[in-house]
């Protein structure tokens, strides 16, 4: 069953018959799914439904988990993500990720954002500081930190730290940004700022967000995918999924009957 989003939008990422296993446990069951370019796609579903596994499979972060195995195909711009010639390190420079808990490095604010460039061997000071400023501005953090770039990243509030992590991901100029419950550890005001930020970023980036918060999915995303027990139940335009879902299980979930 090929579930597609609006045909007018280019498919940035596409998975076909994608299954994932942790040892003998199957976490994803033959998922067919496309993530459209320069749109926000939300993935919702109850805990353990496989939405985080799906997200982490896209930039091969699951490679580090012993016993992880996948079947099927995952494509970025039509190229195999799990192809034999693909270097996961280079892949992750194209598909950035922001995690549930803010995880800044034990470095200054400046060095946190510059780190992605440093590991690519960018040395030119003027170039680095330009990109650091640009990234911090893009993450709506510049005005708050411009006077203390040399200060510790841990002196920032939780919400600021999360925006710093977004700036850090933006600095390597990825094409896709994966957000794994980016606001679940934040207060409502910080959450609102992250959501605004996502709207600003979607002109330039393809964004995929996993969220536990259905209101958040409804507010920020253009497309919503509903996962249940490792399977993709339904995907479509967010307004339709939330007002007129095809599948009764989707309706049960979004109306709060389970999950």
């Amino acid at each position: 069953m090929e579930q597609s989003v609006s045909e007018a939008v280019a498919r940035k990422i596409e998975v076909r018959e994608f299954s994932a296993f942790y040892g003998k446990t199957q976490a994803l069951k033959s998922v067919n799914f496309a993530i459209p370019e320069k749109r926000i796609t939300a993935m919702i579903g109850p805990s353990g439904c496989g939405k985080s596994t799906f997200l982490r499979s896209l930039n091969r972060m699951n490679d580090f988990i012993p016993g992880f195995r996948m079947e099927g195909a995952a494509l970025l711009d039509g190229e195999e993500i799990y192809g034999p010639g693909v270097n996961p390190v280079l892949l992750r420079q194209r598909i950035g990720m922001v995690f549930q808990k803010p995880n800044p490095f034990q470095m200054s604010i400046y060095e946190n954002v510059a780190y992605g460039l440093r590991i690519q061997g960018v040395k030119a000071h003027s170039l680095v500081s330009d990109i650091v400023e640009k990234s911090l501005r893009a993450a709506a953090l510049w005005d708050e930190v411009k006077d203390r770039l040399k200060g510790s990243a841990f002196s920032l509030s939780g919400g600021q730290q999360q925006r710093l992590c977004i700036a850090r991901a933006l600095a390597v100029e990825p094409e896709v940004i994966l957000l794994d419950e980016p606001a679940s550890a934040l207060d409502p005001i910080s959450t609102a700022r992250i959501e605004e930020l996502m709207q600003d970023l979607k002109d330039r980036y393809t964004i995929a967000i996993v969220t536990h918060n259905m209101q958040q999915a409804a507010r920020v995303s253009d497309y919503t995918a509903f996962f249940l027990d490792g399977a993709l139940v339904e995907v479509g335009e967010t307004t339709r999924i939330f007002t007129n879902p095809d599948d009764s299980r989707t309706e049960d979930y979004i109306t709060g009957r389970f999950g």
């Binding site: 390190v89 280079l90 950035g96 995690f99 995880n103 590991i119 850090r168 390597v172």
Partner: peptide, 23 residues
């Protein structure tokens, strides 16, 4: 060292050696 911290660097496209050395 928290796992999330290591993953943050890996997700930026750092190699395992870079993660070890820098973080």
């Amino acid at each position: 060292v928290p796992r999330s911290y290591i993953e943050g660097a890996l997700a930026l496209g750092a190699t395992r050696f870079q993660v070890m050395r820098d973080l």
